[in-house]
């Protein structure tokens, strides 16, 4: 039975929220979430790509021959990623410098390709749009939450505003790579705990 458009949207926010439920696309998740700002920027860039590529793949799903669908997906996704890259250079250059290589790497993000393959290629435009938007926002929220925890513990700041004053000793493990794994694991654990009740 086909789900309603609202359901397609909402599922991305909890039931299938990446990276916690799908556990996909971990590379940018672990690498850029040292601050809330970075996480939010990365999430929004991915959301834009996800929504646009989902829409286009869904529109073209009857035209694209299924034998070369992956190649077509990559072309579509790569196009939108480059658009995002150019726009970020033009309008948010400092953020672009911080995210660096991870912006072009959205092309190979499993979530984007995964949604095209698993959802947009088989569903009409509106549900695909809702799916892209839902998953994208879910991804953004996850990144922002992860970034918030790591930034508050690791540098004692939130959106670059100091929270605890100069006497705060930063828990610097959290802003390093192992901290990302630990933090992600603990958050996953909490989500499962809440979800199983």
């Amino acid at each position: 039975m086909a789900k309603s458009i609202t359901q397609e949207f909402v599922k991305g926010l909890w039931d299938e929220i990446p990276p916690f439920r799908l556990v996909l696309g971990l590379c940018p998740v672990l690498a850029v979430t040292t601050t809330v700002e970075n996480g939010l920027g990365m999430g929004l860039a991915t959301t834009f790509v996800l929504v646009c590529s989902n829409m286009l793949v869904s529109l073209l799903r009857d035209i694209i021959p299924s034998k070369v669908r992956i190649a077509c997906f990559i072309v579509i996704i790569a196009t939108f990623v480059t658009v995002v890259e150019l726009l970020m250079q033009a309008f948010t250059y400092p953020l672009f410098l911080k995210l660096g290589i991870f912006i072009p790497l959205i092309v190979v993000n499993c979530i984007v390709l995964g949604r095209s393959e698993a959802f947009a290629f088989k569903n009409p435009v509106m549900p695909s749009l809702a799916d892209g938007l839902g998953i994208g926002i879910g991804f953004t929220l996850s990144l922002a939450a992860l970034g918030a925890v790591r930034e508050i513990l690791g540098s004692g700041t939130f959106f670059n505003i100091s929270l605890f004053g100069p006497s705060f000793q930063p828990f610097s493990l959290m802003v390093e790579a192992p901290g990302a794994f630990i933090c992600l694991g603990l958050m996953l654990c909490i989500m499962n705990l809440v979800g199983n009740k």
Binding site: I64, V68, C72, I76, T79, T82, V83, L87, Q89, A90
Partner: peptide, 25 residues
């Protein structure tokens, strides 16, 4: 044919965006 058209479209779009953002970048 389809891949060619898709790539051509993609190239066109990117060229347009690039031109539009060049000065700003």
């Amino acid at each position: 044919v389809i891949i060619t058209i898709l790539c051509a479209f993609s190239g066109g779009l990117l060229a347009a965006v690039r031109n539009g953002t060049k000065d700003k970048i």
